[in-house]
């Protein structure tokens, strides 16, 4: 028996919004510790890794480890049926081939349940090595979303370069070029609005704007976003979800062409 209950369905709704454009289907791996999801997009350029810890739920029970393959489009349709303030409960029997979502309105007057068929997915899991990154940048998530949106008008790819002075996002295309520089915030009054850069070595990498724009769908989950970069390894974009976990996106950089 698996059962997980959240007082506010909005978290789950936002999580789905944050991944459903990138992935069409994914496996939710549930165990004692919570719910994990790891999946690559079809072209194997990016990866989503979601963790929702058991202690972040109001009620969490998982007798046997269970992996539920879900069609994220269908799941998103179901979650759209829930009110933001509704309580949501996910339930599944051991070995079940369906999962049930129960939504309860705050005053308990309306209770709805939706059953969804599970899919049998063989998914490729990626072993992600523990990496010390040369640069980590924390900035307001809305700011990052804005930068990605603005720069994607100029070109397909965006260069992120991090130096001691700050971080620079730039794009070049047919209409011209764009550069956005962010300096480290001098005094931190409001932590949520701060730009914090930790850097051992300067790094410059190029990424596809399209994917970054997919990632920023997670903006509503967290006021801050953290970018981690090292030369020649994938970028990590992390959004912490308060009290319950995080969602991390990995994106392979664009590389210089070689002829061999």
């Amino acid at each position: 028996m698996f059962e997980a209950r959240l007082l506010r369905s909005s978290i789950l709704k936002k999580v789905l919004e944050a991944i459903k454009d990138l992935l069409t289907q994914a496996t939710f791996d549930c165990d004692d510790n919570g719910i994990q999801l790891q999946a690559m997009d079809n072209s194997h350029v990016s990866l989503v890794s979601l963790t929702l810890r058991a202690d972040g739920f109001d009620k969490y029970r998982c007798d046997r480890n269970i992996s539920m393959g879900m069609n994220l489009g269908s799941m998103s349709k179901i979650l759209k049926c829930a009110g933001d303030k509704d309580t949501v409960t996910m339930k599944a029997q051991d070995n079940a081939d369906t999962v049930t979502f129960v939504f309860e309105s705050p005053n308990q007057e309306k209770v709805s349940d939706y059953e969804m068929k599970l899919m049998n997915l063989d998914l490729e899991h990626l072993g992600i090595p523990e990496t010390e990154y040369s640069c980590t940048i924390r900035l307001p998530s809305a700011e990052f979303a804005r930068i990605c949106r603005d720069l994607s008008q100029f070109g397909e790819s965006m260069v992120i370069s991090c130096t001691k002075e700050g971080v620079k996002f730039s794009a070049t295309g047919d209409i011209g070029s764009a550069n956005i520089k962010l300096a480290q915030t001098a005094s931190i009054d409001k932590e949520e609005e701060a730009v914090v850069i930790e850097m051992d070595e300067p790094v410059t990498l190029t990424f596809a704007c399209q994917y970054l724009n997919y990632f920023t769908k997670a903006t509503s989950l967290s006021p801050q976003v953290q970018l981690s970069m090292s030369a020649d390894v994938p970028l990590v974009v992390e959004y912490r979800i308060q009290d319950i976990g995080h969602i991390r996106y990995y994106l392979a950089p664009k590389i210089e062409e070689d002829d061999s």
């Binding site: 690559m40 350029v45 990866l47 392979a252 062409e257």
Partner: peptide, 23 residues
């Protein structure tokens, strides 16, 4: 031929295919 090519994650991380054994 100019410009850069998109890298792939499987070039950086190792894939372990883990089919759902029970299913």
């Amino acid at each position: 031929r100019t410009g850069t090519t998109q890298g792939r994650l499987d070039g950086f991380f190792t894939i372990t295919l883990s089919p759902n054994p029970k299913r």
